[in-house]
Amino acid sequence: MEDASISAGDAVRRDLGARPLWSRLHLPWVAGALFLLLLPWATRNAYHHYILNLILINVILAVGLNIVKGFAGQVTVGHYAMAAIGAYASAVFAAKFGVPFWLALPAATLFTGLVGAIVGIPAFRLEGAYLALATLGLAESVRIAIGVTDYLGAAVGFSDIPPPVFFGRPVVDHIAYYYIVMPLALAGIYFSFCILRSDIGRSFKALREDSLAAAACGINVRKYKLLAFLISALYAGCAGSLQAHMAPGFLHPNSYTITEMVTLLLMVVMGGLGHIWGGVIGAAIVTVIYDLTRDYYQYQMAIFGMVIVLTVMFMPRGIGGLIDDYLAKRRFVAIRRAKANAA
């Protein structure tokens, strides 16, 4: 008995030790980047390029939401307002102050991050549905404030946001814009992987499950809640800025309603709340479905709402969770089998 358990332990340890070197670990990323680099050639027309951009911007948004909601367990309904803040901040920087896109994007991202951290403060005291209500209130007031501020175009919308200029040439084509969005989305996914696979991600999960026990393990709960809101707001700010500068360079407060938030939630829930791929899988699937069902748009919300409920009931950990469970079970069986063979 004792010997068998040691050999099984060795199997796990060997497995951990046999993980590839750090440099080799980055091969999939290179492969992924190559694939995304060549992807536009597999598409047929400019509309497809537009959809690709939309997917990637949604990926950035959903990955950010997954960090704060899926991993850190903070039920925020204000994520879309963060995108609005990023979009309008970037638009103001570029259109009103003449700041080039390459500076407006990081500036808007940082600005949104700051706002996000402030919004995270109520999360010190509020949890679950109460936090959802508080963030919903904040988000709606942001949208309404934009809608009545003439400086931001009010209900008419903010138009003539300058496109990025690359070596003297404005980037208006969707295919050209793709090569700005794609590296950013890829970097966003990469950073989220690094964060969530490190001690930071583990601490997020711990405070999601039991903040009292997390504190007893030495985790500064407030710091990590704030960090989660900050990181997710940085993602939303970046995505918002990309929305603003994409042709035709127009923003309207109605693109930032609770409807958009529900769509975003659907992405994360379907992809897998708290799954490292959750945001990516969900954003891709939902954006495509959203586009395919555009003709039935008046039924979209009803269907999306139903899909959320069904997913939560029958697939609580989303598509990513299904994949994970399968892999974990297979490994356990393999270890047990190795043990049986050894005995």
């Binding site: 950073f191 690094c194 964060i195 490190s198 930071i200 583990r202 711990a206 393990c217």
Partner: peptide
């Protein structure tokens, strides 16, 4: 998670992987 207080790397290093 129990080992959290002794983890030696910082947030920036973790983010950049």
């Amino acid at each position: 998670i129990g080992y959290h207080p002794h983890v030696r790397y910082g947030s920036a290093a973790a983010t950049l992987g």
